[in-house]
Design a protein around this nucleic acid. Structure first.
Length: 313
DNA sequence: AGTATTTGACCGCG
DNA sequence: CGCGGTCAAATACT
């Protein structure tokens, strides 16, 4: 099977999954038999499983583009030479702000980038010196869509983030900041930073010295192994262009807002300039607990392959 | 007081 | 020499 064939199959599966999702939505009425929903859900899962398996089969190392919906923003990424001479990039689409990736970051610089309307922020892991964690990231607001923040991750976390996760901290700070006065420019900037949470984030990962793709998974900068993550990923897979929005009323702020783009889509980079050793992908990142809990009733399978490291092998 | 951020200076690379 | 990345002193925050 060549690339075009697999591409068609992937599209077919994704379209089928979308159609089934629409169907499922129509069957969400209490009058509809639960068995129908179960069957639909199972079929949706199968469709997405198949599509994702096909993507795995073709390999993320493929340099060929996959046709995407027009609304999908495909950001090209450049291969970077690193000190070690080899680097790979993983790009992740997230609904979360850069601060909500489960790690503590410390900003160490900001630069205006030529040709970009917005400056690029440079962050490194808070535990860089205490634990020697070399993870770092760059955050830059997208020119094309200012609601999108591109986050590029470099290196992997070797720190023990468990005790310093910001995941629990941010919602409360958001609330407090909204009540705080905005007399100072800096506070306005911080407020703006918090509002990233309601925007789409395009994240890219750059890890170094990855000898095989098994290595990529543990290099993810957020706690992808958690059950919440698995559910969140799946939720977004189902929501593409259809459900689109999940109970913003349940949230005390605009913390969670979903636009129909990006979600749940694995998209190979359209940039064909990269070498065959490049790894570029767009996947969904974990989202807030709020929307996940609101969707628990949909009985998502917590064993969805996203949770399974084997899924990426 | 300790920690985080800001921001101009500095540096290496192309 | 210009650009992107990092440093580090000053500043702000808690």
């Amino acid at each position: 099977m060549d690339w075009e064939q697999s591409n068609l199959l992937i599209l077919k599966e994704l379209r089928q999954g979308r159609a089934l999702s629409s169907l499922l939505r129509k069957h969400l009425h209490p009058s509809s038999p639960p068995q129908t929903r179960q069957v639909l859900l199972h079929k949706i899962l199968c469709s997405y499983d198949n599509a994702l398996s096909l993507l795995n089969w073709t390999g993320f190392t493929s340099t060929a583009p996959i046709a995407t919906h027009a609304s999908h923003k495909i950001h090209t990424s450049k291969q970077r030479k690193t000190c070690s001479g080899r680097s790979e990039q993983i790009r992740v689409c997230s609904l979360e702000g850069p601060l909500e990736d489960g790690y503590c970051w410390r900003k160490y610089g900001q630069k205006d980038i030529l040709g970009s309307n917005f400056p690029r922020g440079y962050y490194r892991c808070t535990h860089r010196y205490s634990q020697g964690c070399l993870a770092a990231k760059q955050v830059q607001r997208s020119d094309e869509d200012p609601t999108i923040f591109e986050v590029k991750y470099r290196g992997r976390h070797t720190c023990n983030r468990a005790s310093h996760s910001v995941a629990m901290k941010v919602p409360s700070t958001t609330e407090s900041e909204e009540k705080a006065n905005h007399s100072r420019i800096k506070q306005q900037q911080q407020h703006e930073e918090k509002q990233k949470q309601s925007k789409e984030i395009l994240m890219s990962f750059e890890t170094e010295d990855l000898d095989n793709r098994d290595d990529i998974f543990p290099s993810f900068p957020f706690p992808i192994e958690s059950e919440q993550v698995g559910n969140g990923l799946f939720v977004k897979s189902l929501m593409e262009n259809d459900i689109g929005f999940v109970s913003p009323a349940a949230s005390e702020s605009n913390y969670f807002s979903v636009s129909p783009f990006h979600m749940g889509s694995f998209v190979l980079d359209q940039n064909m300039q990269t070498s065959e050793s490049d790894l570029t992908e767009i996947i969904s990142a974990p989202t807030s607990v709020t929307d996940i809990s609101s969707l628990d009733k949909l009985e998502f399978d917590p064993s969805f392959p996203f949770d399974n490291p084997d899924f990426f092998t």
